[in-house]
């Protein structure tokens, strides 16, 4: 039976937001260590939308972004997607590779793999904090890179979810580096069954709907 995300109680949403904070905090620390820069994070935003509303919710379908995508498997499953502007991505690459490295103004192979690596570290540390706290085994896929319109980057994730659910839950966190004005959005989109497991693992499995 497809449990509807709309039935989540406030306490369950708070628990998920807290879990998101723990993951994001760990990810920010890892990124900060790697770049020797201060990285701030926003309080995770949790939203429940119709699947077809997702392109609007991530910034608009026609906006052009770099997107780095991971599938998550193991005890819970879903997708994680890091999105940022191309120029901010290039500044991030420069920060990572050092001032001596000449960066192309376009995304070449080196920039792409540097960004994939940054995303890999962010998502990896997000998930490791997550899995320790929720006592779950989680694995991430290799990163998949796209530079295109947001709608086209996100639609495969939407399609995947649309086969199982009408509504999705999305956890969004922003990572901000102030000096170079870099801001990246990290989106976590668990699948419906995964979400139930997640909530059960947190010990707050009280649905208000009473459908159970």
């Amino acid at each position: 039976m497809d449990r509807n995300f709309e039935n989540l109680s406030q306490i369950e949403l708070d628990a998920l937001r807290e879990l998101g904070s723990i993951g994001a905090g760990n990810a920010a620390t890892a990124l900060s260590t790697m770049l020797s820069k201060r990285i701030d994070i926003t309080v995770p935003e949790i939203g429940i939308f119709k699947v077809e509303e997702v392109p609007d919710k991530i910034g608009g379908p026609e906006v052009v972004r770099v997107g780095i995508y991971f599938t998550i498997t193991g005890d819970t499953f879903g997708s994680m997607l890091l999105m940022l502007e191309k120029d901010e991505g290039l500044r991030l690459v420069k920060m990572m590779l050092g001032p001596g490295f000449k960066i192309n103004s376009e995304l070449d192979l080196i920039s792409k793999s540097a960004l994939e690596e940054i995303a890999n570290i962010l998502v990896g540390s997000y998930l490791s904090a997550f899995s320790q706290f929720a006592k779950m085994r989680l694995m991430q896929s290799t990163p998949a890179f796209a530079y295109d319109m947001c709608g086209s980057i996100i639609d495969m994730i939407c399609i995947e979810l649309a086969q199982k659910t009408t509504h999705i839950l999305m956890v969004k966190t922003d990572f901000v580096e102030t000096d170079d004005k870099i801001s990246a959005n990290l989106f976590f989109l668990p699948e419906p069954n995964a979400l139930i497991k997640l909530i059960e693992s947190l010990g707050v499995n009280k649905y208000e709907s009473g459908t159970d």
Partner: peptide
């Protein structure tokens, strides 16, 4: 009129 849809990927 013009009909428009943005950002088709796998859709």
């Amino acid at each position: 009129a013009v009909l428009i849809t943005y950002g088709l990927g796998s859709c």
